[in-house]
Amino acid sequence: MSTSLPLTDEAPLALRWPAVWWSGLLAAAAWALAAYVTHHFPDQSEIVEWTQTGNFAVAQALVAAAFLLLAFTARLIPPLFRRVQGLGPWFVALGLFLAAWQAVTAKFSLLPMPFFVPPQQLIEVYQDDWVRLGESVLASLWLLARGYALGAGIGFLVGLGLGWSPRFGYWAHPVMRLVGPLPATAWLPLAFFLFPSSASASTFLIALATGFPVAVLTWSGVASVNPDFYDVARTLGAKQRFLVLKVAVPAALPHVFVGLFMGLGASFAVLVVAEMLGVRAGLGWYLSWAQGWAAYGNMYAALLVMALMCSGLITLLFKLRDRLLSWQKGVVKW
């Protein structure tokens, strides 16, 4: 942007050569340390042999080399530099974390061994078992998608009905008050017994967990719409349908998204429990399977994948919200 201030980061090269990205240099050092720890000390492998220790050391060394290169070149490529600049401290911390993790597990066994695994074991898991992990992710996603879509859709309609129609509210409100706060997992034994398959039972449970917060927040959203908004539309010739679809729904949308967010969190919990207890697929099932075989590496690997999946889905929801609610001031960034 500014070309007139000679003392900023983007000062003319001639004044500041060599232009070093200092935290990049530190990151290179941290990753080199991690590579060194991995390579130099022997694995304490009384219980397990790790086949990937050597490769992992090389990989870390390569990352260190890449940071070294970046440290001296990133500033020359402003678009690249803008991207990596803010992340510098994290790159350093990550390298140090890997070095420490390596040391306390594989190298010096400071943490009880079969329960805490070194990073190279996760790599082994991903290498050997990626097919089954991938299938588990797909199974979980598919189950979640069905249950969440069903719950969000029905919850939204119920909330709209509660907020709009006193007659619907007369019947739905007491039922919701009684049944809604019950954790969906409490239905688990009954659901597996009543539904023809564990998949349909879990879909129902996830829908239940999602539907309640979505319904309550849609309802409160519709109920809190400024009544003047309806007056304006009515004097301009709007009919009932327009008032619902073009006034109540968009006005309630910020609340609806809070409900969708809470529902997504609740649906994760039910998903994992349902998969651990009844469904014979998915990441929850993978976790309990790994536990059964004392395959701790697989557990960490699956947990990491699950964290990425859940975080990714929430990011997706926030992206959608940012698009639909761009008219709002000060929306929270995820």
Binding site: N226, D228, F229, D231, V232, T235, L236, G237, V247, P250, A251, L253, L325, W327, Q328
Partner: peptide
């Protein structure tokens, strides 16, 4: 709609 009101508050739809 032949009788239109301009209210005391503008009550524009924020969305």
């Amino acid at each position: 709609p032949s009788r239109v009101v301009v209210f005391q508050d503008p009550t524009l739809y924020p969305w």
